[in-house]
């Protein structure tokens, strides 16, 4: 078009400067926003650290830092999976159920107070396999039967809990008997708790999956626009199933670590975790509609909530208030994030 105009030596009578300026400013604002959002979180985190260390001198100690890292580990692991699912634009509510099922499977196959020698590494394989199966079922029902992920994973939450309850039976709580395993998650290796090393590994793998693998790229594309992704011939179906499977395996891993941390097997080992993980992902800035966000942001979100809880307890705030503070922060964070995008014709679900 432009070339033909040149050959005709007659410029078109449309002035595109305004459009170009607008595009330019949108681009600049987007770049600014992608840098400023995590920065805002980091600043919030630093402010929290300063406030809490002023309130209680036990807060800013190495011991408490290790405590926070241990507390953050399991939410971090589960949140990596949750982020992947939310990047698709779906949601995984089944984490607590999957944690219960995998944790219970694992402890019953490991040396425990109900008897039995345990089968060592195979216990991990089988427990994670149980989680994998639950995740695959999630993904297959979601994609093949087109049942919204909210319902599928809501049902699977109960299924996982039920599976764990059946395994648990009517006996006493199974307790870990292997001294090498009890308290393994909070034992230190090179100054960091073991569970946190696992979390670091999971985070690194998660970032690599999103950045460099087909599954991650297609998941982002599906989250942005499934219609376009599908018409571009991307394997949306398979990737969705894979993402749900990955998320479930990570929940299962979280369940095993939570069982070690708790020292006993319980179907409710993951209780309350869902309402830490999803707010953490959202506070981190991953869009619930899919396609926007990332794992590093979620890591910041998890740390923000963990530091907050830890600091509130150390400052002597009644634990009744904790959910209110987390809730208020969640509300503030999303209002803050949505502020610049408000529009008279805007549509928010």
């Amino acid at each position: 078009m432009a070339q033909r105009n040149q050959t005709l030596d007659r410029p078109v009578g449309i002035d595109t400067t305004a459009i170009r300026v607008r595009e330019h400013s949108i681009e600049r604002r987007a770049r600014f926003r992608s840098a400023s959002e995590p920065l805002g979180l980091l600043i919030a985190l630093v402010i929290l650290l300063i406030v809490f260390s002023l309130l209680n001198d036990r807060f800013l100690t190495v011991g408490n830092a290790q405590n926070i890292l241990t507390q953050a580990s399991i939410p971090l692991i589960v949140a990596v999976g949750a982020t992947l699912v939310i990047l698709l634009g779906s949601i995984d509510l089944s984490v607590e159920g999957v944690m219960g099922a995998a944790g219970m499977t694992w402890i019953l196959l490991t040396a425990n107070s109900r008897g039995g020698e345990g089968i060592g590494l195979w216990a991990w394989v089988i427990a994670l396999g149980v989680a994998l199966v639950l995740g695959l079922v999630n993904g297959l029902i979601f994609t093949a039967l087109k049942v919204p992920s909210f319902i599928v994973t809501l049902g699977m939450w109960y299924v996982g809990l039920g599976f764990a309850t059946i395994l648990y039976g009517r006996d006493l709580f199974p307790r870990l008997t292997d001294p090498a395993l009890t308290g393994w998650t909070s034992k230190l290796t090179l100054g960091l708790p073991n569970a946190f090393w696992v979390a670091l590994l999971v985070i690194a793998l998660g970032i690599a999956v999103v950045r460099y693998t087909r599954v991650g790229r297609v998941a982002l594309a599906v989250g942005n626009s499934e219609t376009i992704a599908r018409s571009a011939g991307l394997p949306a179906f398979r990737v969705k199933v894979a993402v749900f499977a990955i998320a479930a395996v990570l929940s299962g891993l979280g369940g095993i670590l939570a069982t070690i941390q708790l020292d006993i097997g319980s179907p409710n080992v993951g209780s309350g975790l869902l309402f830490v993980v999803i707010p953490a992902v959202v506070i981190g800035g991953t869009n619930l509609g899919g396609g926007k966000g990332g794992i590093l942001r979620t890591v910041l979100g998890v740390f923000l909530l963990t530091v907050l809880n830890n600091g509130l307890i150390l400052s002597g705030v009644d634990t009744s208030w904790q959910s209110a503070v987390s809730g208020a922060i969640l509300v503030t964070a999303i209002v803050f994030a949505a502020w610049s995008q408000r529009d008279r014709l805007g549509v928010a679900k």
């Binding site: 619930l288 987390s326 809730g327 922060i329 969640l330 509300v331 999303i334 949505a338 805007g346």
Partner: peptide
């Protein structure tokens, strides 16, 4: 404020629970 209701009501859920 045009915020997603899922996240917003998850936050207010925490506030009402604490209340």
């Amino acid at each position: 404020f045009q915020v997603p209701s899922f996240a917003l009501t998850l936050g207010t859920l925490g506030i009402f629970q604490a209340a």
